[in-house]
C-alpha cells in the first residue's frame, strides 16, 4: 500500500533531518565519507610513481602502467626509474621533458633501498611526518593504512551483521531447541578470550586481508547475533507478525520482509560502534604482529615499531593520532545517529 510506504519513508526522513541538525556527527559523517572515498584514489595522490611523464615527445603514465626502468628515461640508475630525481634534474637542465608527480610523491613501501631515503628522519617539509626505521614515509603509510582499516572494519561489520541477522533472527523467531543449542554455543564462545584465539589461529596460518576478516568473523559474530535474537524475539509476538502469518506468508518472508525492517533501529545505531571495534581490533592485532602480513601499511605495525624507538616521537604519535582522529569521528557519528534514532529528552534538574 503506497500510503503506508510514505509514512515509513517519512520516519526515516525525519531521522535523517534530525541527524543533519547534529552538526558534530553530521560533519564527521561527511568528512569521513569524503576521506574514505578519496582514500581509494591514494595511488594517484600519494605515490612515488609519476602521473604523467613526457619524454622525448612520448607520453607515459607510470601510475597506471606500473614499472618503468630508469634506463627508459635515460636515468643512470639500476632498477625502477626515480621520478623525483628525474623531475629535479629535468627542471635543473631546463629540458623539454617534463613529468607530473602525485601531490605527495612518496610511496608507503619505498624504503632505504631507494636512493635518497633515510631512516628516522624527523618531520620536515619533505616527509610531513618523518620516516620510519626502514626509511619509509610515515605520512604515506598512515594514509594507506586509513583505507585498509576502514575497509577492514566495514567488511567485518557487514559480515557480522549478515550472520547476526540470519542466526540471531532464527534463534529469536523459531526459539525452541534451535535457540537453546545456539545459546549454549554462544555461551561457550563468549567465555573464550577471543583475541587469544585469533592469535592462536593467526600463528598457524599467516592471514591475508580476507582470511583475517574470516578469522575475526568466526570469533566476533556473537554480539550482533545476540542483539538480533532479542529483537526478533520481541517482534515476533506482535500482532503484525500474526497477521502476516495468518495471511499465509512464509517464515522466510515474515522474518526478512516484516520483522527485519522493524528491527532496523538497533542495527543502524550499533553500526558505528561496531566500526570502532573493528578498527581497534585490527590495530591491536597488527601491534602484536598477528594482523595484516608485512609490509602492508597499518597503524598497529607502525605503533609497534614506534614503541621500539620511543625517542622518535613522530613514529608513535602519528599512528596514534590517525587512529584517534578516525575513531573519534566515528564515535561522533554514532552518537548523532543514536540521538536521531532514539531521541530521549532528559528533564533537567534546574
Amino acid at each position: 500500500m503506497p500510503e503506508q510506504q510514505e509514512i515509513s519513508l517519512s520516519i526515516l526522513k525525519k531521522r535523517w533531518l534530525k541527524f543533519k541538525t547534529l552538526k558534530r556527527g553530521y560533519y564527521s559523517f561527511i568528512l569521513l565519507i569524503v576521506l574514505y572515498g578519496l582514500s581509494w584514489f591514494l595511488p594517484v595522490l600519494i605515490n612515488n610513481r609519476a602521473l604523467v611523464v613526457s619524454y622525448e615527445g612520448d607520453l607515459y603514465f607510470p601510475v597506471l602502467s606500473g614499472y618503468h626502468s630508469g634506463s627508459e628515461f635515460a636515468q643512470d640508475a639500476p632498477g625502477e626509474a626515480l621520478y623525483r630525481e628525474l623531475q629535479a634534474s629535468w627542471e635543473q637542465s631546463e629540458s623539454d621533458n617534463w613529468l607530473v608527480m602525485p601531490i605527495y610523491p612518496y610511496s608507503p613501501l619505498e624504503d632505504i633501498t631507494v636512493k635518497g631515503n633515510k631512516m628516522y628522519e624527523p618531520p620536515s617539509r619533505k616527509h610531513w611526518l618523518g620516516s620510519d626505521n626502514t626509511g619509509r614515509d610515515v605520512f604515506a603509510r598512515l594514509c594507506y593504512a586509513f583505507n585498509i582499516s576502514i575497509s577492514f572494519a566495514l567488511v567485518l561489520t557487514i559480515l557480522n551483521y549478515i550472520i547476526g541477522v540470519i542466526v540471531g533472527g532464527s534463534m529469536g523467531y523459531f526459539g525452541g531447541k534451535f535457540d537453546l543449542f545456539f545459546q549454549r554455543i554462544i555461551e561457550i564462545w563468549s567465555s573464550l578470550p577471543m583475541l587469544f584465539v585469533i592469535i592462536i589461529i593467526s600463528s598457524i596460518i599467516r592471514p591475508s586481508f580476507f582470511l583475517l576478516i574470516f578469522i575475526y568473523t568466526i570469533v566476533n559474530w556473537i554480539g550482533m547475533t545476540y542483539l538480533m535474537r532479542a529483537e526478533f524475539y520481541r517482534e515476533k509476538s506482535k500482532d503484525y507478525v500474526a497477521a502476516a502469518l495468518s495471511m499465509g506468508q512464509t517464515n522466510f518472508k515474515v522474518m526478512f520482509k516484516h520483522i527485519l525492517p522493524n528491527s532496523m533501529v538497533p542495527i543502524i545505531t550499533y553500526f558505528p560502534f561496531a566500526i570502532v571495534g573493528g578498527i581497534s581490533a585490527l590495530v591491536g592485532l597488527d601491534y602484536l604482529g598477528f594482523g595484516m602480513p608485512p609490509p602492508t601499511p597499518s597503524w598497529g605495525q607502525m605503533l609497534d615499531v614506534g614503541l621500539q624507538n620511543i625517542s622518535k616521537w613522530w613514529m608513535v604519535l602519528a599512528p596514534v593520532s590517525a587512529q584517534f582522529v578516525t575513531l573519534i569521528m566515528v564515535v561522533f557519528i554514532g552518537e548523532a545517529v543514536r540521538e536521531a534514532f532514539d531521541p530521549k529528552v532528559y528533564s533537567r534538574l534546574r
Binding site: S280, G284, Y287, L303, L307, V316, L317, F324, I328, V331
Partner: peptide, 17 residues
C-alpha cells in the same frame, strides 16, 4: 570522547613518548 576513542595500549604508547 577522547578516552573512548583511544585504546588503552595506544594511550600507553603516547604516555611513554
Amino acid at each position: 570522547f577522547v578516552a573512548y576513542s583511544i585504546p588503552g595500549f595506544a594511550l600507553g604508547g603516547v604516555l611513554l613518548v
